[in-house]
């Protein structure tokens, strides 16, 4: 479904600030894979997701989504294959537009946008049904501006928008990190539900080792722009945090230095 072939990206090349963010990363996801991605700060987790989404072009290597080479495709064209939820709840929705208008924008992802109505009656009914599934009471506020919603509500809406038009790959970039624990758990549960119901292929970056172990069928650990640990199936299910930390020290030769990941896990 998704294949990364030796993708490499350096920021500020040729300067003292040069930073190799992705160092020839290769990865292959099968259809229905739900991968969680962990690693210290600056390990390249979000960079990898941004490379897939096309926020900028990789220096070399190639990215193939469902058999299509998208390496040189601009961000807005790749969007038809991807659903994205960002860390910042403000980033995934248009605050000045209504809830239903935001959803209408999402359902037109990858389709031509012409002079037909921006939202139809049939769509409104469909959106209402979808919103009801979220169980946040948003179905009665469809004409409210999204800017009035809380961070958690916006993130849930973004998740719905990302998955409504079934994407080839769903990219979740620490999408619960900016939420309070209770809301984060709710949004995470929702993510699980949406991914399994639609049998989506998904990648989730997280700082929380518990979440990384608990969710998905595969786990990747990154360090200094490389994948240093890749585990799936039974082996992944039986992982513990201590084993993960040990793995990290083994593979990288360093202690896992990320207070937030450690604190959140204990």
């Amino acid at each position: 479904m998704l294949e990364l072939k030796g993708i490499y990206k350096a920021f500020n090349p040729g300067t003292v600030n040069e930073k190799v963010a992705l160092n020839e990363v290769s990865l292959k996801l099968n259809e229905g894979d739900f991968v969680t991605i962990i690693g210290g700060n600056g390990a390249g987790k979000s960079t990898m997701l941004n490379a897939i989404a096309g926020a900028w072009k990789v220096d070399f290597g190639s990215i193939i989504i469902d058999g299509v080479d998208v390496t040189k495709m601009p961000e807005h064209k790749r969007a038809k294959y991807l659903g994205r939820v960002f860390q910042d709840p403000m980033m995934g929705t248009a605050p000045e537009m209504e809830i239903q208008e935001n959803m209408a924008l999402a359902i037109r992802r990858g389709k031509p946008r012409g002079l037909g109505w921006g939202i139809t009656k049939k769509e409104k009914e469909f959106f209402k049904k979808e919103l009801t599934k979220l169980d946040l009471g948003l179905e009665s506020r469809m004409t409210s501006k999204v800017g009035l919603l809380s961070g958690g509500q916006r993130q849930a809406l973004t998740l719905l928008m990302a998955s409504m038009q079934k994407p080839k790959v769903l990219l979740l970039d620490e999408h619960t990190a900016a939420l309070d624990p209770k809301t984060a758990a709710k949004v995470l549960e929702l993510s699980d539900q949406i991914i399994s119901e639609n049998n989506l292929t998904a990648m989730m970056v997280t700082h929380n080792m518990n979440d990384a172990i608990k969710h998905g069928n595969r786990l990747i650990m990154m360090h200094e722009g490389k994948i240093i640990f890749d585990v799936s199936g039974e082996e992944k299910k039986n992982l513990t945090i201590d084993e993960l930390l040990q793995k990290f020290t083994q593979s990288s030769g360093e202690e896992f230095a990320n207070d937030r990941a450690l604190l959140a896990s204990r």
């Binding site: 960002f86 248009a94 928008m161």
Partner: peptide, 8 residues
């Protein structure tokens, strides 16, 4: 950002 992510 959102617009580009929605393919605009």
């Amino acid at each position: 950002n959102m617009s580009r992510a929605q393919g605009i």
